[in-house]
C-alpha cells in the first residue's frame, strides 16, 4: 500500500493552505464544542452524569445498560450517577493517552505517505467519525422515540458518550482519535499481510480487523462499571449489550474511508492539491450521512422488517442478560 501511494505523491509534500485552514477550523470546532459541553450543557441537552433519573429521550429505563444491570447496580447508579462521570482529570488523562497513541500513527503516516496524505487521513477521520457519531447522537436525542419498530420496540437509534475532556460536537476527542489510530493501523496491517490484494480487498480486511478489536472494546467500555457511553434500546440484535449496528457502522466507515483515502493521489492528478483536498473532505462529510441512512434503511427497516415477517417479535441478545 505504502509503495503504491508513495510513488504517486511527493513523500515530503506539504498539505498546503487548504489543509492549514482545515486544521484551524477543526481546532476551532473542538474548542467551541468543549466549551459548550462542559460550561453550557443545556444548549445541546447533554444528559447529566450525576442525575441519571433526569435522562429523557431515552430515559434510564429505555437504555440497553438498564437491562444489563442488576437491581442493586440500578439503585447505585440512580443514587451516585455514572461511575467516575464527574472526574474531569481522568477524562483529560484519557485524552492525553489517545493523543499519544494517535501521534504514533500520524508520524508513521507522514513518513510513509507524506504530510498531505497523513493530514487528510487525520482530518478526514475527525469529520468521518465525529460527524457520523454526532448525527446519530443528536438525531436520536431530538427525534428519537417517534417511531415504533418491531422487533426492537420504540426506535431511539441513539447513544451518547458520558465521558470526555475535549469534544468534537457531541463526540469526545478520544473516540475521534481512537478511530483514526485504529482505522490507520488496521488498513496498514491489511496492506502488509496481503500485499497482492487490491484496494477493495484491503479495505474489507482492514474493516474486519478493526471490527474484531471493537467487538471486545465496546462491551467492556459500556459495562455497568464503566458506562463510558450509553445505548438506547431500539435495535433488534444486541451483542453483549451493544446494538449490532454499531459494529456494522465501524466496518462500513473504515471500509469506505480506506477506499476514498487511497484514491487521493488519483484525485490530486485530476483536480490538484487544493481541489482534491476539498473534494476528499466533502466526500467524507456526505459519506457520513449516507452511512447513517444506509444503516437506518437496510439494517432497521429492511432487515428488521424481514425478521418481523418471520415472526421475530423480541430483541435477540447474545448472550441474554448481559
Amino acid at each position: 500500500m505504502a509503495n503504491d501511494v508513495r510513488n504517486r505523491t511527493g513523500k515530503n509534500a506539504t498539505g498546503g493552505a487548504f489543509i492549514t485552514w482545515a486544521y484551524v477550523f477543526l481546532y476551532l470546532i473542538i474548542g467551541i464544542s468543549t466549551y459548550i459541553h462542559h460550561v453550557h450543557p443545556w444548549i445541546l441537552s447533554v444528559p447529566d452524569n450525576r442525575n441519571v433519573a433526569s435522562w429523557q429521550h431515552p430515559a434510564f429505563e429505555e437504555t440497553a445498560i438498564y437491562d444489563r444491570m442488576t437491581e442493586e447496580e440500578r439503585r447505585q447508579v440512580l443514587k451516585e450517577g455514572v461511575p467516575q462521570g464527574g472526574d474531569l482529570t481522568a477524562q483529560f488523562a484519557t485524552d492525553l493517552f489517545m493523543i499519544i497513541v494517535s501521534w504514533f500513527c500520524f508520524i508513521h503516516a507522514r513518513a510513509n505517505f507524506g504530510s498531505w496524505m497523513a493530514s487528510c487521513f487525520f482530518i478526514g477521520s475527525f469529520i468521518f467519525t465525529g460527524l457520523e457519531e454526532s448525527i446519530w447522537i443528536l438525531t436520536g436525542r431530538y427525534l428519537g422515540g417517534l417511531l415504533e419498530h418491531n422487533p426492537g420496540g420504540t426506535f431511539f437509534g441513539t447513544y451518547w458518550f458520558s465521558k470526555g475532556g475535549f469534544w468534537f460536537f457531541e463526540t469526545p476527542l478520544v473516540a475521534c482519535l481512537g478511530w483514526f489510530a485504529i482505522a490507520y493501523s488496521c488498513v496498514w496491517v491489511a496492506g502488509k499481510v496481503f500485499p497482492r490484494m487490491g484496494l477493495w480487498g484491503r479495505a474489507v480486511v482492514g474493516g474486519l480487523i478493526a471490527m474484531g478489536t471493537d467487538l471486545w472494546a465496546d462491551p467492556v467500555a459500556t459495562s455497568p462499571e464503566l458506562m463510558n457511553w450509553v445505548w438506547a434500546k431500539g435495535d433488534f440484535f444486541l451483542f453483549f449489550g451493544i446494538p449490532f449496528y454499531n459494529f456494522i457502522g465501524w466496518f462500513l466507515l473504515i471500509f469506505l474511508f480506506a477506499v476514498i483515502w487511497e484514491k487521493l493521489p488519483d484525485m490530486e492528478r485530476k483536480w490538484g492539491r487544493t481541489g482534491s483536498s476539498a473534494l476528499f473532505l466533502t466526500v467524507c462529510t456526505s459519506g457520513t450521512v449516507l452511512v447513517a441512512l444506509f444503516i437506518y434503511v437496510v439494517w432497521f427497516l429492511v432487515s428488521g422488517g424481514i425478521l418481523h415477517q418471520f415472526g421475530l417479535e423480541t430483541v435477540v441478545q447474545i448472550p441474554k442478560g448481559w
Binding site: 508513521h108 493501523s185 496491517v189 478489536t213 472494546a217
Partner: peptide, 12 residues
C-alpha cells in the same frame, strides 16, 4: 517508526 502502527494498536 515502521512499528508505530502496531505499537499503537497493541497499546489501544
Amino acid at each position: 517508526v515502521e512499528f508505530y502502527p502496531y505499537f499503537s494498536i497493541y497499546l489501544f
